[in-house]
């Protein structure tokens, strides 16, 4: 089944607080192994299961997440 939603994460803004991961009901976000320019491991989107519920974006303290649904 195709994903119902998708998110984009601005990895330059992410500070690796992991709050988006704790609220995601589909486990569609994980921490990347790479670093961003500030030295944090940013969150990255794992496709497939996202349903565009916006919980991650509501929680994100950095306003780094945009949510698409359709």
């Amino acid at each position: 089944m195709a994903a119902k939603g998708k998110i984009t994460i601005d990895q330059g803004l992410c500070k690796s607080c992991e709050l988006c991961i704790t609220v995601c009901p589909e486990k569609a976000i994980r921490i990347a192994e790479t670093f961003n320019h500030r030295g944090y491991h940013p969150a990255e989107f794992v496709l497939e299961t996202c349903r565009g519920c916006s919980l991650c974006a509501t929680m994100c303290p950095e306003v780094a997440i945009e949510v698409y649904r359709g």
Partner: peptide, 16 residues
């Protein structure tokens, strides 16, 4: 897909 959540307009694009 339709954008349903993005940065508010009156929040400048500066990192916190």
């Amino acid at each position: 897909m339709k954008k349903v959540f993005s940065r508010p307009k009156c929040l400048k694009p500066a990192p916190f």
